[in-house]
Design a protein around this nucleic acid. Sequence first.
DNA 1: GTGCACAATACTGTTGACGATCTGCCCCGT
DNA 2: ACGGGGCAGATCGTCAACAGTATTGTGCAC
Lengths: 214, 214
Amino acid sequence: MVIAAPVADRLRDDILRGAFPPGERLIELQLTERYGVGRAAIRAALVELDAEGLVQREANRGATVRRISVAEAVEITEARAALEGLIARLAAERATDADRRRLRDLLAEMTQAVERDDKLAYSKLNRDLHGSLCRIARHRVADDLVANLRNRAAHHQFRLALVPGRASQSVAEHRAIVDAVASGDGPAAEAAMRTHLASVIDVLRHWEAFDTRA
Amino acid sequence: MVIAAPVADRLRDDILRGAFPPGERLIELQLTERYGVGRAAIRAALVELDAEGLVQREANRGATVRRISVAEAVEITEARAALEGLIARLAAERATDADRRRLRDLLAEMTQAVERDDKLAYSKLNRDLHGSLCRIARHRVADDLVANLRNRAAHHQFRLALVPGRASQSVAEHRAIVDAVASGDGPAAEAAMRTHLASVIDVLRHWEAFDTRA
DNA sequence: GTGCACAATACTGTTGACGATCTGCCCCGT
DNA sequence: ACGGGGCAGATCGTCAACAGTATTGTGCAC
């Protein structure tokens, strides 16, 4: 976390980009070869990612990439709503004029991305916007927690971007957030962020009903 | 975290109960003797507690018990307010009749503890009440995050209980929370929980102004 | 007395090997 | 054919030893 742990960072990136799908076994000796470090370093990285909730370790059975059920993704998003609500409120109170301009620029780019139907760019801009709010809010504790929660649900977030019609609704919700932050209205920003994530939860719940049948 | 790591648990308990004060160096060889395990196990425990934010590790310089500034305790409590607000709301929606009775019993005991001026019992009941709400809310993700945040700020929480007149105000705030949860009013429970933690933050901020002078 | 180079110390970081435990498979009996 | 016991392979958990790095203490020049 604090100490430079390049191995954990690389492994985390690989898991998030899908190099190791959920449920995949993470065998220490294989990782040793892949990253060119000793088993002790791999072990430390696995303990760290276990604490982050990205991998699961069982005694004498090794580590696997943690599977996140839809129900758990809902919980994660609920927690995100609470914390990002706080962040949005603080961002509204602390944003400088430059910050406000930057948020509006990001929103404009998002709108264009939706018009171009460029899901990849939209997904990136989405992350940028949430990341910018975190930076503006200057709240280390909440930032770290939210970053972790986002990582945990990353797979489901990716799936979300592919839902037809989702992007246009999402951009409208983000517009409400940006408007509230730009006008310095903390409570409105918090409410808008909660509304946004509540709509994400709605989509997830929809899947839950569907997936449990399949 | 998931795996049985008795060493990390014991070390965490020892840190929380003050056996290792903030800033204390945690030397691996000494911990080896204290807990009767090899250095590898100690190392894993330190990585785990580092990820939890309880200890700080620096490259080639070892681990120390993390010092939590008052400013950081404020941030931690702000994040707690957001998450425990969610928990209180869910608890209000999900509490059974037995849960409601139990909460009222705890509140009655807290009132008596304040009348007896029994700060130790009050502190324990305080933890029990928050813990009960977490259990009732049945929200694993938020529970885990809150438990971690509480641990991180444990020292400041302890100091809080010693402020004169604090207990009577605190019990009034808890009464508002319990009343809202018992009557099944989710939004009111969330608001009451936020009010409670906002008053905790007020006390912390008071210290901040005082401590930075000293 | 003070500042600096240098050596001694203490501790961490890493490696390699060994024993313990679990999993999958084969063989055998029914 | 099917189920259970045992064997072999794979993998984790642990330990001891070595190398590398930061810190502390000492002596010397000024």
